[in-house]
Design a protein around this nucleic acid. Structure first.
Lengths: 346, 346
DNA sequence: GTGAAAGCGCTAACAT
DNA sequence: ATGTTAGCGCTTTCAC
C-alpha cells in the first residue's frame, strides 16, 4: 500500500526533470518539448500521480468549486430546515436547475456544493463558506422575493449570480424569464381557442414574477376586448391551485378558460375542474406555466408556457464562471423568452 | 476595499501575539490563557479574519467536504446525462436522501458536493476528484444494483458509504432497509383487511431490494394460505406502475389487493384502478412502500410501508464521517426497520 | 501557556 | 525550453 500519495516531486524524480516541468505538463502549458511531455506523462501514469488541489488552490486562490444555494426568506427551526430540503427537491423546478447547472459545470470538471439557506444563521454560513475560499462563487435560487442572502453576498463583494431578479436592485448578475411575455402567450392561446370568460390563478403577488405574468396576461386580454379578468392568488403549490380554482368556480361557474401562473397550480386546478365535472379542454381550457414534469404528469397533459430553466441555469453558471475568471466585471442580466407548448389541456 | 484578505499573520500582529496562538484560539485548542483568547477573538472580529481553507487542508490533509454521488449502471450520452439529473430529482426519494445527509452534515459546517456518475468516464471523474483530495469521501446512491462505482471506490481505498447493499459484497460500509420485513408488513395489512386475491407489482427484479420485498411479501402470503400471488414487474416509475396494474387487472379482474414495491408505482396503480372504476380501498386495497411525498399526493392518500430514508441517509453521513476521522476502520452495515403507515388506500 | 520555525504540495516569477 | 526559487496561509512539533 502507498503510505503516501505521490507528489510532483516524486513524478519529477521519476521522469528525471524538475517539478516545474511536470507542473507545466500537468497543467497543459505549452513550451514543453513533446518528447519530455511524453516522458512526464509516462511518469505520471507509473506513479499514479493526482495533483493535490489544496496546494494548487493555495497558490492560485481558486477552488474550481461553486456553491449552489437554495435560499428562502424564512426563519425556520432546525427540523423545518430539513423538511425544507425535501420540499425543495419535490419541486420539479429544482431538478431542472440542477440539470442545467451541472450541464455547464461538468465538462469543466466542476461540481456544485449544495447549500440551503433558510435561516439568518445559514445565510451567514454561506457567506463564511465563500469567504474561507471553499468555493469561488455562488449560484443562488431564492424561494422568496425578499431573500436576504443576495444583499449579503453583494455587500461582501463575493461573486454570485441569481436566478430571477431580486426585489431591490443589486450589483449582481442574474438570469430571468420575460414573465410578461409568458402571460401574453397564455392569453393568446386561450383567446385563440375561443375562450370568452377566462380567469387566472396568479402566483403570490409579493413576487415580482407573479405580478408580471399577471400583467402580461391582463394586458393582452384587455387589448383583445376583455378588460377585466377574475383573479385568485395562489402560492405556486398544488393545494393553493386547488383552493384558488374552487373559489373561482364558485364565483364564476360559467368560466371557460384558466391561466395558472405555474404548472403545479394548473394541475391543482385541473383536479378541481374534473371533480366538478368540467371537461378539459372542451368545457374549460387550462394553460400552465413552466413546462415542468408536472405538465406531463397532469391529466390531461398541460398546454403550458415553457420556461427554459435548464438554459437559464446553465447561463447562470456561465455568468458566474466569467465573473470568477475575471472575464466579466460588470453585473449582467440575461432575460429568456418563454415559449408556448401545446398539449391537451388548451 | 481590502486588497487582500486578512491572514493569521495579520490577526497575530493586531493582537500582539504569535501566529500559533491565534491558530490555537481559532481552532478551539485549550491551553490558551482566557485573557489572550479574548484578545485574539477581538482581533479576529476587527480584522474580519476568515481562515483560508486551502492552507488548512494542505496541512491537515482534510477538506471537511464529502461528495454525494448519484450513480447508475448506465452508459449514457451527454444529453441523456443532463436528463438524468432532472429525473433523479423528480423522484421524491432523492430529496429525502439530501435532507437526511444535510441534516447530519450541516451542524458540522459540512456540505455535500453533488455529482452524477452515469457513465464510465463520470465514474472515473468521481474517483479522480477524491484522489485529488477535493473531498474526503463519498456517499453513494446507486440507481442500479450493478453500479460500477462502488468497486472502483473500494479498489482505490477511498472512504465511501453506500445506500443499499451492493450486488456483490464489497469492503464498504452501507445502510439498508430490512426489505423482507417491508414485504411482510404489506402482506399483513392486506390480509388484515380481508383481501383474498392480492397481487403485487414488484420493482425491477435485477435489484436485490426488489427481490427481497417480493420474497417477504410472498412468504407471509404463503404462510397465511395464499401460496401463489400474481406478480408484475415494474421499474419503480409511475408509468411502469400503470402498465403493470393494467396487465394485472386484465388477467385478474377480480383482484382485491395490491402491494406495489414503491409509492410511485402504487400511485400509478391507483390511477389505473380509478380509471377502471375500482373504488379504493373498498373494491381494491393498495399498499405502497417508501412513504415518499407521492404517498401523500396520491388520491387516495396511500397506506404504505415507510422506509426511514432521512435516518438512513443521516446514518450514511455519520458512518462516512467516522471512517474519515479514523474512528471506524472496519466496514459496517446498518439495517433499518420499515414501519406501516396507515392512510386511506388500505 | 506561548513563540519560533519547519514544511504541507503546488504555481509562477525569474534566471538560464 | 527547462530549472531554481520564493512563497501561498496554515498547523504542528519543539523549545522555552
Amino acid at each position: 500500500m502507498s503510505s503516501r500519495a505521490p507528489t510532483l516531486e516524486d513524478v519529477a524524480r521519476e521522469a528525471g526533470v524538475s517539478r516545474a516541468t511536470v507542473s507545466r505538463v500537468v497543467n497543459g502549458v505549452r513550451n514543453v518539448d513533446p518528447a519530455i511531455q511524453d516522458l512526464v506523462r509516462r511518469a505520471v501514469a507509473r506513479t499514479g500521480y493526482a495533483p493535490n488541489r489544496a496546494a494548487r488552490s493555495l497558490v492560485t486562490r481558486r477552488t474550481e468549486t461553486v456553491a449552489l444555494v437554495v435560499s428562502g426568506a424564512g426563519d425556520l427551526s432546525d427540523e423545518a430546515q430539513d423538511a425544507f430540503a425535501s420540499r425543495v427537491f419535490s419541486d420539479p423546478f429544482f431538478g431542472r436547475v440542477v440539470a442545467g447547472v451541472t450541464g455547464y459545470l461538468r465538462p469543466r470538471s466542476m461540481y456544485p456544493v449544495l447549500m440551503f439557506a433558510e435561516t439568518p444563521e445559514a445565510r451567514r454560513d454561506v457567506v463564511a463558506y465563500l469567504r474561507q475560499g471553499r468555493a469561488d462563487g455562488a449560484l443562488v435560487v431564492s424561494t422568496h422575493a425578499e431573500d436576504a442572502l443576495p444583499p449579503l453576498l453583494a455587500e461582501a463583494e463575493l461573486p454570485a449570480v441569481l436566478f430571477a431578479r431580486p426585489a431591490r436592485p443589486l450589483p449582481l448578475s442574474c438570469v430571468d424569464l420575460a414573465h410578461r411575455d409568458g402571460g401574453h402567450l397564455a392569453a393568446e392561446r386561450l383567446l385563440a381557442r375561443g375562450c370568452r370568460r377566462s380567469v387566472t390563478i396568479a402566483g403570490p403577488l409579493a413576487v415580482a414574477a407573479s405580478q408580471e405574468r399577471l400583467a402580461g396576461f391582463r394586458r393582452t386580454m384587455a387589448r383583445r376586448g376583455h378588460p377585466s379578468v377574475p383573479v385568485a392568488e395562489g402560492a405556486f403549490t398544488l393545494d393553493s391551485g386547488r383552493t384558488a380554482m374552487a373559489a373561482l368556480l364558485d364565483e364564476h361557474p360559467d368560466l371557460d378558460g384558466v391561466f395558472a401562473a405555474n404548472d403545479l397550480m394548473a394541475q391543482g386546478a385541473c383536479e378541481v375542474l374534473r371533480e366538478r365535472d368540467r371537461r378539459i379542454p372542451q368545457d374549460v381550457a387550462v394553460v400552465g406555466l413552466d413546462d415542468s414534469s408536472a405538465a406531463v404528469t397532469c391529466r390531461p397533459p398541460l398546454t403550458t408556457v415553457r420556461q427554459p430553466v435548464e438554459q437559464m441555469a446553465a447561463a447562470m453558471a456561465r455568468l458566474l464562471d466569467e465573473h470568477i475568471r475575471g472575464d466579466r466585471t460588470e453585473p449582467a442580466s440575461e432575460i429568456f423568452a418563454p415559449e408556448l407548448v401545446v398539449r391537451d389541456s388548451a
